[in-house]
Design a protein around this nucleic acid. Structure first.
Lengths: 252, 252
DNA sequence: ACAAAAGTGTTGTTTCTACACCCATGC
DNA sequence: GCATGGGTGTAGAAACAACACTTTTGT
């Protein structure tokens, strides 16, 4: 096999931003780094790309090795490539975003590497550019969730409308009118009411709902709007990607 | 400086998908590859990441070296990492999307490497996974343009409403009612009418419009809808990203 | 009986889509 | 004077946001 000469080869790491929801709050799964530099400091789930695996495979492997998690919703976000992002050596970091229901995986999570859930507003100091990765992931999640029914990946199979609403309200820091919210969600047909109720949070109890798989996957591409337009606070960026430059069209 | 041991280092390439518009059609800028393997076959604007540059810098450099283009709208799309994507050696490909007005840069484009514009429906055979990169870029462009006023990057400073409409109609393969279209676009305040008219395409002439920079940048993050909802044909994917897996929520 | 959370309907406003005619000009 | 493409307005339908009371049941 021929090789390209005179080119420098670089390490590629995979960094997984794992968002979780426990029924009340968003959390982030972090781990204490097991090797130098920055050993024992908090870090995203990360690892180096191996010779024979694709990026997607590596992301699944890294997450599985560090947490035991499998079959989790994951998507590639963005490659980070600042030359100085890792002080030890040049490393390109490819970021993945994962969404899981904390309670569901509570037992599945291996504690070999002692991953820990942190509240989003109480994150520890993190290595390298991991804070930026998290910030971009959060922006991306806000952006995507405003358009696609992605947040269901954070919920258990059976969930209630109030739970779902908390999920949306929490992500954007808003409050939504429950009548309008339930009407919008139900009109899409992606969830259906079960007979049982969740009585753990109120005396009356709230009906459980489950996803209607066919409609869910069909609507996944669709642009929805569970979020009232005017309720998205101006401070929240809804752009998924950084843009490098405007052309001169907008520079003049 | 310490290094990570026992990890394999990999080449990182930057591949730029350069979309252009000439007033009538979308085109793609391609180049004949200058080195083995696949020398002289058609390729995206590509090059290897250098040790001291960031990914974004590399993208700008590669595009500039091959075409002479500078100050172009560009954004990172996605990293491609299939181990077999380059037969010579393992290479991670980071894809960037660029948008330019063909006429504006007609003279600026250097022909040292002889880049050539191809019609979107008449692309030559391409190397490696470049067809997939292009396909994903096109999907991304359709997705993003349906929500953000990004297509203006393809137009000259002064453009007409019919031109703008052709831009949108061409991207989605639809026809749009011109009354509704102009009302929607104008209501955003991102463009303003000039006094002159473009008389090259009709006897009456069409008014020129220009971007209102402040409103344009302000609305860039906004979710707009110049495209009538029902007019987006079902075959057109509007999803920007591939997702790796659904969680079991949707697998049950 | 009362506190706490869940559920449900209506109305006015806004936004969207569908649709057809006149205008200006070069030939 | 006519052919060509450019410009404009209205009316009905749909979607949206605002809003308050009743239900259930555990204590």
């Amino acid at each position: 096999m021929m090789k390209y000469s005179n080119q420098s080869r670089i390490l590629v790491s995979i960094d997984c931003v794992v968002f979780g929801f426990d029924g009340e709050n968003y959390k982030l799964l972090l781990i204490q780094r097991g090797f130098e530099p920055e050993k024992n400091k908090w870090s995203l789930m990360g690892g180096f790309l191996q010779p024979e695996e694709s990026l997607d495979e590596a992301a699944q492997r890294v997450l599985h090795e560090l947490t035991g998690l499998k079959n989790v919703y994951m998507e590639q976000l963005q490659a980070f490539g600042c030359p100085s992002r890792d002080p030890a050596e040049r490393v390109i970091g490819v970021t993945y975003v994962a969404l899981i229901d904390i309670k569901k995986y509570e037992k599945q999570i291996s504690n070999h590497f002692k991953p820990k859930w942190f509240m989003m507003d109480d994150l520890p100091e993190l290595i390298f550019d991991h804070p930026q990765m998290i910030e971009l992931s959060l922006k991306h999640l806000r952006y995507k969730a405003a358009l696609h029914p992605i947040l269901f990946e954070l919920l258990p199979e059976k969930f209630t409308l109030p739970q779902l609403q908390i999920l949306y309200e929490g992500l954007y820091g808003i409050t939504i009118d429950k009548r309008n919210f339930s009407r919008k969600v139900l009109s899409t047909g992606i969830i259906k009411k079960e007979v049982e109720k969740d009585k753990t949070k109120s005396k009356k109890g709230a009906y459980y709902y489950t996803l209607v798989k066919e409609n869910y996957q069909a609507q996944f591409q669709r642009i929805l709007n569970f979020i009232p337009k005017n309720d998205i606070p101006p401070g929240i960026e809804t752009e998924s990607k950084v843009q490098l430059a405007y052309s001169e069209i907008s520079d003049n």
